[in-house]
């Protein structure tokens, strides 16, 4: 069981987290934008997350926190 949380208003929508997720569960939201005007990254299928923290390690803006 793992959980990732996104500080969405810090996200700049660069999609690097999406590119490194081994389970392909990180994706960009399509239905909302954040304060900066980007579609922030998010995870819907949290049960598939393995808590590897690759997304957090790749994120240039320290958006992501990982719990395991």
């Amino acid at each position: 069981m793992a959980r990732v949380t996104f500080d969405e208003d810090r996200c700049k929508g660069c999609e690097l987290c999406v590119s490194v997720c081994p389970k392909h569960v990180v994706h960009m939201t399509k239905d909302r934008i954040n304060k900066k005007g980007y579609h922030p990254a998010t995870v819907d299928e949290m049960d598939k997350c393995i808590g590897c923290a690759f997304c957090a390690m790749m994120c240039p803006d320290v958006v992501i926190e990982v719990e395991k």
């Binding site: 069981m1 793992a2 959980r3 208003d9 810090r10 700049k12 929508g13 660069c14 999609e15 690097l16 980007y38 808590g51 923290a53 957090a56 390690m57 790749m58 994120c59 240039p60 803006d61 320290v62 992501i64 926190e65 990982v66 719990e67 395991k68």
Partner: peptide
């Protein structure tokens, strides 16, 4: 559950001004 990854204390809360995807942010964090 315990936190396995969070913002290091040695970074402030200020959002960085770098362009999206710029690796400056990664190196700052390291």
């Amino acid at each position: 559950m315990k936190k396995v990854f969070q913002k290091p204390q040695s970074l402030t809360d200020k959002p960085m001004h770098y362009c999206p995807g710029c690796t400056h942010g990664i190196v700052h964090r390291l």
